[in-house]
Computed example of a mutant assay.
Amino acid sequence: MRAPVGEGRARLLEALFDEFGENGPSPNLSMRQVAERLGVHHTLLTYHFGSRPGLLSAVLSEARRRDNLMIAATSGGLGFIDLFRAIWDFYSSTAQEERTRAFFHLIGLAVYERGAYDEFVADLDDLTRLLEAAARRDGSSATDAAQSSLVAVAGMRGLLLQRLLSPSAEVDAAAYRFIALFTKESTT
């Protein structure tokens, strides 16, 4: 008896994480090369993920889902500023650099070929929702919480991209200055 499609896909995702780690396979590997490393036929990957971009999208989406669950579990009681700092510290760490590169690689591809990355694009707002909930716990209105969270995540992504392109201590300093701007905003 064959496993349901979702189970097969989930098992393949686990195998991908086991073989390639949290960052998934290099974007330079073909579906055939990935399949060879997993010991499966490449058509199985195509069946479950559609294409190399679909495979990379699924792996990165799952990695981000796991990250966000971990961030949410460890920071459930944090306010907006402390959670913002924790998210920055997590994603700006050198341990996350390859995943951050993969994230921006897929973002660039999704801009040109949105339909191929629907799964990836669908969960882009997870961090925004985490920050929004923290802002609401701090007493912000729904509108203020939503807008502050969107600005925070957009700024953080811009700073992460800057960090990849021109790494320097100035980027980290700018990130903490950016976070501090929200502290000033919440006291006015």
Rank of each mutant, 00 (worst) to 15 (best):
L83D: 00
A173H: 06
R129Q: 13
L165C: 06
S149N: 01
A35F: 06
I87S: 01
R177M: 10
E98K: 08
S93D: 13
P4A: 13
L164I: 10
D172K: 02
P53K: 04
G6L: 06
S166H: 10
S51M: 05
F104E: 03
T188R: 08
G77E: 13
Y176Q: 08
E132C: 11
A145K: 04
L38R: 02
Y112E: 11
A116N: 12
L69D: 14
P4M: 05
A110K: 09
R66C: 07
N28M: 15
G6M: 08
T43S: 04
A86W: 03
R137P: 07
E170C: 09
T187V: 12
R129I: 12
L56D: 04
Y117K: 06
G108Y: 15
L38G: 04
S75Y: 04
R32W: 09
P167A: 07
A110S: 15
G21D: 13
M1H: 08
F17C: 02
E98S: 12
S186Q: 09
G139H: 02
A134Y: 04
E119R: 03
V153Y: 04
F80M: 03
P25C: 06
A15I: 03
L181N: 12
D126F: 11
H105K: 05
W88I: 15
L127I: 06
A180F: 12
F103D: 02
F90L: 13
A174I: 08
